[in-house]
Design a protein around this nucleic acid. Structure first.
Length: 476
DNA sequence: TCTGGGGTCCTAGGACCC
DNA sequence: TCTGGGGTCCTAGGACCC
């Protein structure tokens, strides 16, 4: 997009309605006052791994250290992670087939994504870090927010020890950003990652005001947490190009023009915490919906194979449902066609849901509903490239007490927990319903035995979760 | 030939009730 | 026969995150 053109007609700061100073009743503390000493909410410490997936691949394969390394999405589709060496060579998110040749010429090594390994290393990393501060909120596979009310100098010292401990104990480098709000902690973390002067740990409150302005002025508005591509376009059209512009915009006008979410972002950029701790929202780990979906390795046509795939996905979704102790009241399915295929009328994207008679966690009941009520919505002649199952309306099974005659259709044969026990012992796809119990030949494509299931041709060993894939060390 | 897989929250609008 | 306004609940869709 040509930014100057879009923005060219705005001739002055006041030209945009979003810049009009707030004259409404809400009084907001000015952003240039930092009552750090009296702040009661403490500091937010954001710890974020550097090139996490690439770092995980290197933990058990030191030959990859210093080598440009990329990790691919499922099906070996796109590049989803890059080591520092690969960043100048390979763009993020690019389809692998488009750059494969160039990459190999330039010595780039690729790995299929190995979420089992990443999940295991993530859990270890989070476990190490949770000892260091009063409260931890795991935000994603590679980052967590920690909270502390300690003095900033202590937080800096502890953060440096924590960073060293994760590197020593797990082998993953992390960067730490410390700030009064999550949005600023994100920006500070980003700054710590890219500026060598900080050694991976940086605190917003230790920087002078002119550096704050400088950092925010150098941060494009779409690098701000909560601003994506769509919002960026609208903001740029109103002359808001950087994080500093957004901080200085009128929060009331932002709320009116955009949403309460973006208003919170403005306040967060001024140092006023507005984003709550999400880990408290649902007893920690409970999801509100469970979705299992995959791309196929080739287009799939007809109800038979769609049924097979949905049966595998619903068993996966049920396992996650049982793990969080819930029952689902609604089940939905969807199929998708390739957005890249030539448009030969194949634009159908069916989405169908069914309300269950009563909440359940029984994969047999759910599969029956899917087969009898939902699969008929799928066009049997369309070439689908993906399918998925969504479980929603989740209720805690422990506290679900229906009236007599309306009891939950719990898994009466106990099939679910038998499957859980068997797969925990013998591995996924060792036992299951239909294609959910068919293991592919060879480790490389083991989702199921079906030829539509995921392609992972460059998979590394799952060193921390499989006995037979444990690394072997030889002493000479 | 080959383009990921999860999630969250908010808002607008419709259905329905009083 | 005519009809207002306010409230709640639900859902689809849009936006975001990693």
């Amino acid at each position: 997009m040509d930014v100057s053109q879009t923005f060219g007609h705005i001739t002055s700061w006041e030209a945009s309605p979003l810049f009009t100073p707030s004259r409404k009743s809400i009084t907001l503390p000015p952003h240039d006052q930092k009552p750090a000493a009296t702040r009661t909410s403490g500091s937010i410490i954001l710890a974020d791994a550097n090139s996490f997936f690439a770092a995980c691949e290197r933990v058990f394969d030191p030959t990859l250290i210093g080598v440009p390394l990329v990790v691919l999405s499922n099906n070996d589709g796109c590049v989803v992670a890059r080591s520092a060496e690969a960043k100048p060579i390979i763009p993020m998110g690019v389809p692998w087939y488009q750059v494969r040749e160039m990459a190999s010429e330039r010595g780039v090594v690729a790995r299929s994504s190995n979420y089992e390994l990443y999940g295991s290393l993530s859990a270890r990393m989070m476990h190490v870090m949770h000892h260091y501060f009063e409260h931890q909120e795991v935000y994603s596979i590679d980052e967590c927010f920690l909270h502390s009310v300690k003095p900033i100098e202590d937080i800096l010292t502890i953060s440096r020890s924590m960073r060293a401990a994760v590197l020593q104990g797990v082998g993953i480098p992390v960067s730490v950003g410390i700030a009064p709000t999550k949005t600023l902690a994100k920006i500070t973390n980003h700054w710590a990652k890219h500026d060598n002067g900080f050694n991976g740990v940086c605190a917003w409150d230790q920087l002078p005001d002119d550096v704050h302005d400088e950092i925010l002025a150098q941060t494009p508005v779409d690098d701000v947490w909560g601003v994506g591509r769509r919002l960026m376009r609208k903001l740029v059209a109103r002359g808001i190009l950087t994080a500093r512009d957004l901080r200085d915009a009128d929060p009331i006008a932002i709320r009116r023009k955009f949403s309460v979410l973006l208003q919170r972002t403005v306040l967060e950029l001024r140092g006023i915490p507005c984003v709550e701790d999400a880990s408290n929202a649902l007893d920690g780990f409970r999801k509100q919906q469970i979705l299992c979906s995959r791309m196929f390795s080739r287009p799939v046509v007809g109800h038979t194979e769609i049924r097979q795939a949905l049966s595998v996905y619903v068993q996966n979704a049920c396992r996650r449902l049982r793990r969080q102790g819930c029952l689902a009241s609604t089940v939905g399915i969807f199929c998708g066609v390739s957005p890249y295929a030539s448009t030969q009328g194949e634009t159908s994207m069916p989405y169908a849901t069914a309300q269950l008679e009563s909440p359940t966690d029984d994969p047999l009941v759910l599969m029956k509903v899917i087969n009898e009520q939902l699969v008929s919505k799928v066009n049997p002649r369309t070439h689908y490239i993906r399918a998925g199952v969504i479980l929603s309306g989740l209720v805690e099974s422990r506290s679900y007490h229906p009236l007599e005659g309306f009891e939950a259709r719990r898994d009466t044969h106990n099939i679910g927990s038998i499957l859980d026990t068997a797969t925990a012992r013998f591995g996924q796809y060792s036992l299951g319903l239909g294609y959910g119990g068919i293991r592919g030949s060879g480790r490389k494509n083991e989702e199921t035995g079906a030829d539509w299931s995921m392609r992972r041709e460059m998979l590394s060993p799952r060193c921390t979760t499989r006995w037979d894939e444990m690394p072997v060390v030889t002493a000479k």
